[in-house]
Design a protein around this nucleic acid. Structure first.
Lengths: 237, 237
DNA sequence: ACCTGAACACCGTTCAAGT
DNA sequence: ACCTGAACACCGTTCAAGT
């Protein structure tokens, strides 16, 4: 019913029909000991899975279809991933890395701004990425789809994003610009707010909230309302 | 990997093995024109689906297994539900109704309390229900699993919960006990915070936040921190 | 070392045929 | 009116056999 999600995640690659790669069968081969197919099946499968996720959400990712798009037999992927979950976890690793990079990048050149101002930029980058990559956001968010604990890079990138916001909150507290509260609780509350905003949109709940225009400005306004409440009256303005 | 969710959703019914109902084949039959089986297949399928969801999450709900547990053939459910999504939507309708009822009930006998106090009670009831019914919370929350727009009762119950919190916020604003902000934005922000807290736990993210004890007290504390920030200093204490 | 292709035990969904 | 049972086009996963 919800139909094609129209996820701009998908790379520019045209959607290949599910046929084998056409390749000059034995053109100018110097009998190079090329493996079996196009070099890196593992990455080709991840790419296909990314593409599939972009087309129809995580449920749409299928080991067999990924194999088809990579031009191999249905059993081949299991040489590289022990399960469908492992393939999705590999997709999550790529997505989480881009997510982390974009968030970190949003703070570049803002070292001089007050910490809560930088927190706004971080929150905006979080929301922006989530709205542009809804499927990938779902994949990295839910432990029902992937083996989060089993992936060191997933844990590392995730922790780094968390650390970024925690250090900004701590800085604001140190500068006396923020209401007093235990830092871990404050960090959790802040994250829950931004996560909840992103999730409401991605889960399709926003239409139930009588939102007239596009989602992003509204979510930004909500996030800024929250950060505004964190700010001490003396520091505001 | 995440394993059995251990969802206390599941009703007290013992898990039936997937066998037909044993029933005296033709014991004392007065040739009553009893339909075909035990009366109400539609409800039996919903019950089986609720049970399956409780056992292993929404993904674990299968039309065929629901049919098996109801003691009918694989095609039979399609006389009552046009698709698997429709069956899940029926599950969501039951869950949403219980959710709405419990939330509304949490305000009983609190008419004399200040509005933000009642908002705390509502938030606590929201979180409590979500944590006790993680699978059902997922089913009613995501428009990827169900046909939300197609169900009038789903829309009605959902709207009623939203109205409840909006009227409390409006009351607090009218009594001058709350920071000024546009009501719709305030309501969305409040909902996003509570939704985000519930989702973080249900999506399995809390272990990444170095939470020592059980989740619920922590989520309650975060919710109360937020409501505390809504409160004007003059009204606090 | 890496892939094929058949096989197994599942799905959702349809539809003629039965009662 | 409601259900059966076979059928179709899919899955994830395994495993002998090929190169």
């Amino acid at each position: 019913v919800y139909g094609a999600y129209n996820d701009p995640d998908r790379s520019e690659k045209p959607l290949m029909p599910a046929t084998r790669k056409t390749r000059a069968p034995a053109a100018a081969g110097k009998a190079a000991p090329r493996p079996y197919h196009h070099g890196n099946l593992r990455q080709a499968l991840i790419d296909a899975a990314v593409q599939l996720a972009g087309e129809g959400g995580p449920e749409h990712v299928t080991v067999r279809e990924a194999a088809r798009r990579a031009g191999v037999s249905p059993g081949a992927p299991f040489r590289h991933f022990p399960s469908r979950e492992a393939l999705l976890t590999a997709v999550a690793e790529e997505a989480m890395q881009r997510f982390r990079a974009e968030i970190a990048h949003s703070l570049d050149g803002r070292e001089a701004e007050p910490p809560l101002q930088r927190l706004r930029a971080l929150g905006a980058a979080f929301l922006h990425w989530a709205l542009r990559n809804p499927t990938h956001f779902r994949i990295i968010s839910s432990r029902h789809l992937i083996d989060f604990d089993g992936s060191a890079v997933l844990r590392r990138d995730n922790l780094e994003v968390r650390r970024l916001s925690e250090s900004l909150l701590q800085e604001a507290q140190g500068a006396g610009q923020m209401q007093a509260a235990e830092l871990p609780l404050l960090a959790l509350t802040t994250r829950a707010l931004v996560y909840g905003l992103a999730r409401m949109e991605i889960d399709g709940q926003l239409p139930q909230w009588d939102v007239p225009g596009p989602a992003e400005p509204l979510l930004l306004a909500a996030m800024e309302l929250f950060v505004g409440m964190l700010e001490l009256p003396s520091a505001a303005g």
